[in-house]
Write a protein that binds this DNA or RNA. Structure first.
Lengths: 205, 205, 205, 205
DNA sequence: TATGAATGAGAATTCATTCAT
DNA sequence: CATGAATGAATTCTCATTCAT
């Protein structure tokens, strides 16, 4: 019982720290963020942060990874719920846009702080981001195998192009002072991307 | 005479500092870069940096802006050299890829350091990057007006999607340890993007 | 318990820093003083200084104010212990001389560093120094009201003259390499000042 | 002729630099003053300052010494113009007050920057200031020998007291935002000092 | 003489992290 | 587990001075 309660309290405190970190990183940027500020907002002492996370960078990594993991899980479920690769792609992209539109502070961290250093970017890029690209790539490969997507564009390039296009739209939204809702932009974006990916009869290659 | 020599020497020194900055920023990242190291590589004293640039951030801004300005000029020339919007887009994208593939250190700075803070990103995004997006958008609008590009995707969204796709490919190339040449990827990427942008007869919207 | 111990330890450390500051400021002057040197002599880390004082200037201000406050308290007690304004003045001046003769390092700081900038001097001059001048002025006014001091010299001017005369003697003592003890000079100085202040019968105004 | 012209031009330039220095030192204080600013206001290049003065400190020293020398010369003349030591003292003090009241920027430099470091203060104190104190002391000694000034206060102490009292009045005037004219204060001040210095019959020591 | 571009030493302060309590 | 006082490394930029022209 004691353990259970402790466990739950621990989880609650950890969550508070992560949430405080999202806020502070989103407001100040990684280098401008102060651990003391994160501690204060989480309602814990400075030293307590280090009982939950190894340090500032690990705090950012954990933050990004946990949100990315949760997103990826949902995106995979979305994709699994239908058969048509085009529909899969549509759902995944919409999930991507919606996830971040939902939480602007988190979006700021994802779109900007993710790149605070090359080493760091590499590390993250090889983790959840790579898995997400892999998901996109698999969907595209399925589509190509099934004949609905073209085969003359390497799936890896296509996956990156899709990711890049979506990512850029979100970054623009994050930076804009009066941003146009992302949900409104997903339709046109998907038309463009799907059309580009689809196999057309008149193509001769 | 004194002025002329002084002018030329001044330009040479300024150039040396900018080049040194590209190297150091690309190796260490903005926050990891040391002004002293920049000075040493440029072959000037620490204080001399401040005779040419207001400070560290201004050094990075100048660097990015000057290269972006030069790129944009070439891209505009490329676009002006042909009439078909599809061809214009192809040339601009190829120029974009080639410009950075040419200079990996510079590419690292552009793909990563450009985002070192929100304020900074905003500032740069509103300058040359905005002008580049504008160029892409104009090409797409021309194509839509001329009937070769679809009209059911807002040109702004399309321009961002194109930029994002290209940008992401370059970032991947920058981060990879054994990157596949960008030139090889431009063909497939353009096929995808152009196909997505083109107006097809069977579309009904 | 924790609090009490912490409180005492805190006071001890604060005192050590202030004492170290007196030494360093007196040896090097304000601008020549190094915070690192203060920290070293106080036996604390550089950063610790900033847990107790806001910065270098605040350190000097605190130092001056706390000593001035203590001096002023004693001077007021001295004055309160007797009734004759002449005696009051004598005691206050003797206290002034003795306080600084007692601690040459502190005297150096008071006589020289007090004036390290106009802004600073104004700030300090409006604080404890103003209060000290006020004390002198009140004594003189009492004397004038009681008839033992002349009324034809504004008390404010008289108070400043007394302060200036004492101050100058101390400065000379601080600067001299083989200074004549201040205690020996207080008698003559007071004779001169009191005589100048006293109301004489033969005066006709 | 060339030499003469050059000489005159040289003097003019030197004067311009000194005047610029008074302004800048008075506005910013010694440590806050920038040699570049002095050069700019004097209308010469940075390097030119060093053709006329050895460096920043020498500039301040020269400035103070030349004004002090001129003052001292006038004060001596004033003193020589009459015989009564009381009158001599009156004239010298009035000259002192008037000299600085005349030029507030210069007064700021004299009252505040004179003390920018112990070493510096010592150096200046041993020069013109010492000579000025010597003049005061001689007048007092004459008075004592002639019987009009008391003999029971060492002339050195008396001279310092007089100097200190005058100095303090000027400092207060320099620091005040709406200062009361010094000329108005010289009467009361002199009454106090002379009365204190005078030999009275009823004194028994 | 005059210039002013170049020099480079120099120091206050911040803040992630630790560890005694 | 939690605290928060203490640590101390680490770095930009300034500015008096020089010296080639």
């Amino acid at each position: 019982m004691r353990g259970a309660l402790g466990q739950r309290s621990r989880e609650r405190k950890r969550g508070a720290i992560l949430r405080a970190a999202v806020e502070v990183f989103s407001e100040r940027g990684y280098f401008g963020a102060r651990m003391r500020e994160v501690a204060k907002r989480a309602g814990v002492a400075d030293g307590t942060l280090y009982l939950y996370f190894e340090g500032k960078e690990h705090l950012l990594v954990s933050l990004l990874e946990e949100h990315a993991r949760a997103f990826l899980k949902r995106a995979r479920q979305d994709a699994a719920e239908c058969d048509d690769p085009r529909e899969k792609l549509r759902r995944v992209v919409e999930r991507h846009l919606a996830s971040l539109e939902n939480d602007r502070a988190l979006a700021r961290v994802f779109q900007i702080e993710l790149r605070h250093s090359r080493r760091f970017l590499r590390q993250v890029a090889r983790g959840q981001v790579a898995a997400y690209l892999q998901l996109l790539q698999e969907i595209i490969e399925q589509g190509a195998a099934g004949g609905c997507f073209r085969a003359d564009v390497p799936a890896e390039v296509a996956a990156r192009a899709v990711f890049g296009a979506v990512d850029e739209l979100i970054t623009a939204w994050v930076l804009a002072s009066r941003p146009k809702p992302l949900a409104e932009q997903s339709g046109p974006l998907l038309r463009l991307l799907l059309e580009g990916l689809e196999a057309h009869e008149r193509r001769k290659r």
